[in-house]
Amino acid sequence: MNIFRLAGDMTHMFSVLVLLLKIHTIKSCAGVSVKTQELYAIVFATRYLDIFTSFVSIYNTFMKLVFLGSSFSIVWYMRYHKAVHRTYDREQDTFRHWFLVLSCLLLALLIHEKFTFLEVLWTFSLYLEAVAILPQLVLLQRTRNIDNLTGQYIFLLGGYRGLYILNWIYRYFTEPHFVHWITWITGLVQTLLYADFFYYYFLSWKNNKKLN
């Protein structure tokens, strides 16, 4: 565990808690894509399969429970909570995210490190996490503007990915044979998807005008 990894996990936890608190307190999910949240729920469900079979540390188990709990409750709020569901932008949130799930599954069946059930699902979750933000970014462009909490959510998510890349660079230089191509490539692709969002986020912050 290095400072980049810890900061990355904290930023990631903070991003999902910001979103959950926003939806819970103002009972609105305007501007939020439920498809991205569903993809994240699938990512965590297929990646944290070992949560009940092997115990590593309190930290590890606690963080997995936070990510699983927050992503599933955000989906529950947006799908089944009456007040919140009313504010869901169904017409605009039309990304066909099941195609993302299918293509990531096929890719995981083709490219993985070992052909075992856990390994394929774990690789699938890496591929899916890389593209999970797409429905949210498309919704962002469609609705032309973004309320600051959703902007902060995406900003923090991007920050978590950036810190993970720093964590991998740090580990590459400090641990002898730390090489994980699939993790690195998927992590890089995911971070690049945030690049243009960061650009506009920074511009709006610099010019102190609404992000659109």
Binding site: S54, N60, K114, T116, L118, E119, W122, H180, T183
Partner: peptide, 10 residues
């Protein structure tokens, strides 16, 4: 091994 990686990072 996968076990290690699954424990290693979130």
């Amino acid at each position: 091994p996968l076990q290690q990686r699954m424990h290693d990072e979130l």
